[in-house]
Design a protein around this nucleic acid. Structure first.
Lengths: 138, 138
DNA sequence: TAGCAAAAAGCAACATGGTTGCAAAATATT
DNA sequence: AATATTTTGCAACCATGTTGCTTTTTGCTA
């Protein structure tokens, strides 16, 4: 059921290392988004902080994961869908933060709406974050 | 032209102090949003970091300013419109970050759009941040 | 307007999140 | 199997933000 971690790494021409396998599988194992802190905790104290930072950075660059801005000022990361290529993301979906369980979801099916901006403003990217109660907590 | 700073503080039952006057006038003097760092710089090295943090916190609590989440993980603050009351904000407008000059604007006239969320999800608040080029930089 | 209680400012110390440089270890390549 | 290249881990560092406590300032009242 779990997509082969090694395969994903190879496809992105990344060398296969323990930390990359472990961190990537953390993302595959669960539905929501992960913050840096979550990863350090769930990985079981195994990796250096720096390694986690660098691994996440690498994954973002390769388009394996994408970042989600949240109001509480902590960057979260989530898996990208298959149509994300290196350096060019297509995460035009809405993100949802549950105020109960504090989980962040990618609502892949909810597309970011069009906006009528004032004269003179041109937008290249629109980020939408909805806050509320998720289906598991209601 | 500049609204009386002392008046605003009084209306919110805040004591009138040097730092509050100074910081509040910084917001009134310019159109965009300010991050904590901006304030420390523009105030001319006069205030302690802690004072700035606490002043901003107080202003947020009183509904004088509101926070804007941004992708680069730094909280920005902007003036609230008049209909914001203590503990109850009405900042249901879109925010805009210019990638050229890095200014954050409140687009007060652009209302956050409605969203159709998946079954089971209930949202209490929707945050929209548009990224692009502003009218001064195009 | 002097005096006093309450609030705010300033300072030190700490916590967290994140980065950089470098040496040691692991990976990929022939 | 041996070497060149990556990646890791460590130490040190920086930025951002918080907490506790003392000193100063403010607002109020006599």
């Amino acid at each position: 059921m779990v997509k082969d971690v090694k395969e994903i790494l190879k496809n992105n021409s990344l060398s296969i290392t323990g930390s990359r396998e472990k961190i990537l599988s953390l993302f595959l194992e669960q539905p929501g988004a992960l913050a840096h802190g979550d990863i350090e905790k769930r990985a079981g104290e195994k990796f250096d902080r720096v390694t986690v930072y660098r691994t996440l950075q690498t994954f973002v660059e390769k388009g394996i994961i994408h970042t989600i801005p949240t109001a509480d000022n902590s960057i979260r990361y989530a898996l990208c869908k298959d149509d994300c290529k290196e350096g060019h993301h297509h995460d035009h979906h809405v993100h949802f933060v549950c105020t109960q369980c504090n989980t962040t979801y990618c609502l892949d099916d909810v597309v970011t709406p069009e906006l009528k901006l004032p004269k003179g403003y041109t937008s290249t990217h629109i980020e939408v974050v909805a806050e509320g109660v998720c289906k598991n907590c209601k």
